[in-house]
């Protein structure tokens, strides 16, 4: 069997025995700087804009709803089951469909909708990144198939960066089968290094920080 053949070759090459323990792996220093919430939010919004995304600070859930409503005029949208979107009243906006639990139905709608609306489990201030964990609240395809993605994030979810994320979530696999970090709109530079947005994923991304 190839499994044993390969493992045996590896052990022989390394001079190790089956079941032999290991030395402690080198420690990784995670640096989590103390950054106050407002500075983080400012950094996040700046980073999103630098990536050609659109960012918005909404003081209240009503403000967030108004902003999303204005972006959605004349468009169809799929919203995730994130409780925060319900809290903001975004699922009741005109043209928005939500509450999907069936993969096929969700996928069919995502394939035709103009906009996908999600919350995010976290956002990373230094890189302008959204962190999406697949769950009953968040499906994978909503932030992927429609040409526009709007993420509405409560302000306490804004972390300083990757190191803080991996400090809070040292083992993401214990919580989800899929953790995706989204940093700006989909892009390619495969032809003559010319930047094109929205080649497969959404070409337009809006990040709304609420609170």
């Amino acid at each position: 069997m190839s499994r044993d053949a390969i493992l045996n070759k590896v052990r022989t090459a390394l001079g190790r025995n089956s079941g032999q323990g290991i030395a402690e792996p080198p420690q990784v220093r995670l640096r989590v700087d103390e950054v106050d919430t407002e500075t983080r939010i400012a950094s996040l919004l700046r980073a999103v804009e630098a990536l050609a995304g659109k960012s918005r600070r909404a003081a209240t859930t009503a403000d967030a709803r108004a902003y999303v409503g204005a972006v959605l005029v004349g468009k169809t949208a799929v919203a995730s089951n994130a409780p925060f979107l319900r809290e903001c009243g975004i699922v009741e906006l005109a043209g928005v469909q939500s509450g999907f639990t069936d993969a096929a139905a969700l996928r069919a709608l995502c394939a035709t909708a103009d906009v996908g609306i999600t919350s995010a489990d976290y956002a990373l201030a230094d890189t302008g990144t959204l962190v999406m964990l697949a769950s009953p609240a968040e499906a994978r395809l909503i932030s992927l198939l429609p040409p526009m993605h709007i993420a509405v994030v409560p302000k306490d979810r804004v972390l300083s960066g990757l190191d803080e994320l991996l400090t809070i979530l040292p083992r993401p696999a214990e919580q989800t089968s899929s953790m995706v970090l989204i940093t700006g709109p989909s892009r390619t530079a495969d032809i003559e290094q010319i930047l094109v947005r929205g080649v497969h994923g959404p070409g337009e991304i809006h990040v709304v920080v609420v609170g």
């Binding site: 890189t127 990757l162 970090l181």
Partner: peptide, 10 residues
């Protein structure tokens, strides 16, 4: 700093 998508799939 990070590519657009980083997927951690388990």
């Amino acid at each position: 700093a990070l590519t657009v998508y980083t997927s951690f799939l388990s």
